[in-house]
């Protein structure tokens, strides 16, 4: 349950950031895309943090997540490269900040 709780908090935070970024007018399906992207990256990041690649460290893993989400946004949505990069940076920047604030 702890795991699902953190996943839920991450998705909600990223949806809120995306809503701010697109001023409440997001491209079609963006909410579903953000949800699916997080369903893919969140457990993998957790595995990297917890698994045999633990030595990779927190920040390199965050960078990998950021790049993976950027690639997924480009693959699934109509967003331009710069918009997809901003979306990935903003959402992940926010969740990284939250990870320091939340227990």
């Amino acid at each position: 349950m702890i795991y699902l709780g953190t996943l839920f908090a991450t998705v909600i935070a990223e949806l809120l950031v995306a809503a701010l970024l697109f001023k409440g007018r997001p491209p079609k399906d963006l909410w579903t895309v953000i949800l699916c992207v997080n369903l893919c990256t969140h457990p993998v990041a957790s595995f990297l943090l917890n698994g045999p690649w633990h030595g990779l460290g927190f920040w390199p893993i965050e960078w990998l997540v950021l790049l993976a989400e950027f690639a997924m946004y480009l693959w699934v949505t109509h967003l331009k490269t710069s918009r997809a990069a901003y979306l990935s940076l903003a959402t992940n920047g926010c969740t990284v900040a939250l990870s320091f604030l939340l227990p």
């Binding site: 399906d29 699916c36 369903l39 893919c40 993998v44 693959w75 699934v76 949505t77």
Partner: peptide, 24 residues
């Protein structure tokens, strides 16, 4: 026990992305 739930979630996410890509 550690990875059954996260693994299932990843599969669900991939399936969702593939579905959305195809629909687009």
């Amino acid at each position: 026990r550690i990875w059954a739930i996260p693994g299932g979630i990843v599969l669900l996410g991939i399936a969702g992305l593939v579905f959305l890509r195809r629909r687009r």
